[in-house]
Amino acid sequence: MSDSFHPGEREAQERAGETAIADRNIAVLSDTVIAGARPFIAKQFMGVLASADADGKVWSSVVFGKPGFLHTESGRSILIDVAEAERDHADPLWANMTPGADLGMLFIELGSRRRYRVNGSVLRLDQHGAEIAIYEAYPNCPKYIQRRHLRRSGEPALPAPATHGTVLHGEAEAIVRQADTVFVASRHVDSGADASHRGGNAGFIKLMDDSTLRFPDYDGNSLFNTLGNFNVDPRGGLCIPDFERGQLLQLTGAARVLWNQDDPHNETGGTRRYWEFKIDRWILRNTPQPLEWEYLDASPFNPAVAS
């Protein structure tokens, strides 16, 4: 299975002592969406997308639509039915989706803690939507997902208000401090873009200063896709939802992985791993659609947050 991982992933697996586990877990990897996952994708109203802009900056985006707007018939490509009139062009995603561009996709159902990951490249983007060719797909574990139920979704109203910045203050800072859900984008020059999820109890993200965030890295599936990508290319993106106010905070910057750190309060759940994210730029946007969420409960796997 060694050819299934690039050197950055192998380095992270070896440092964590989890190479053998990674080799076992990679058995779920496929070059198509398996038949059982296709109805799951089609029922989603939310998709997480990882892309890179013309300058190489990596962005994490969340798009919403009526169930069925994300779908695959053959399992070899994903269709994203978001018409031109429904796209928020304050989100860099739409400019980044040029034919041939890498795109990472995460289909996550917060209410059931199920998720499925697909990586591919853009075949087309036109006025009706996009089609993404698939080159790898696999399920993810349900850990660290806070359960939420979408009670109501309205029609898109564009343009949606947006603000920009380079350091965290005010509303953007408050969103980071209360976050319990983060979507992470990373990229490898050969393996492409990747979208993943990080979650924890509110306060699990620490602000080291007004442009640096620190994340504890919990036990996962041992593949180390995200940290492996950061080992090779530190550029990354974050998207932090504010479920209460219907906003998305998107940040682009660079990550640094920290191994074998002191962790007296067991913030990492025993891994002693962290990663820091240095912000280059952020965008705070309202979601195009009005969304009303109901919080259900936190993941039972979340480590406690030190005060």
Rank of each mutant, 00 (worst) to 15 (best):
S77P: 06
I78D: 13
D81S: 11
V82G: 02
V82C: 09
A83I: 11
E84N: 07
E84T: 11
E86W: 07
E86S: 15
E86L: 08
H89G: 09
H89Y: 03
H89N: 04
A90R: 01
D91W: 00
D91E: 03
D91T: 06
P92S: 07
P92F: 00
L93V: 14
W94Y: 05
A95M: 12
M97H: 11
M97V: 12
T98H: 02
G104R: 06
M105H: 00
L106H: 09
L106N: 00
I108M: 03
G111M: 01
G111E: 03
G111L: 02
S112G: 03
R114T: 11
R115K: 14
R115C: 09
R117G: 12
R117D: 08
N119V: 10
N119T: 15
G120Q: 00
D126T: 08
H128N: 05
H128V: 10
A130V: 07
I132H: 00
I132L: 10
A133R: 02
I134S: 11
E136W: 03
E136D: 15
C141E: 08
C141Q: 04
Y144V: 08
I145F: 10
I145W: 04
R147K: 15
R147L: 04
R148C: 03
H149W: 01
R152E: 15
S153R: 12
G154T: 14
E155K: 06
E155P: 06
A157Y: 07
L158R: 06
A160D: 15
A162I: 02
H164M: 06
H164V: 11
T166N: 09
V167S: 08
V167K: 08
L168M: 14
H169C: 13
G170T: 05
E171S: 09
A174P: 01
I175T: 02
V176S: 12
Q178Y: 04
Q178D: 15
A179G: 00
A179I: 03
F183Q: 01
V184L: 12
V184C: 08
S186A: 14
S186K: 01
R187F: 04
R187W: 02
V189M: 04
V189A: 08
D190N: 14
S196T: 08
R198T: 03
G199M: 11
N201S: 14
A202Y: 05
G203D: 12
D209S: 15
D209C: 07
D209Y: 07
T212S: 10
L213Q: 07
L213S: 14
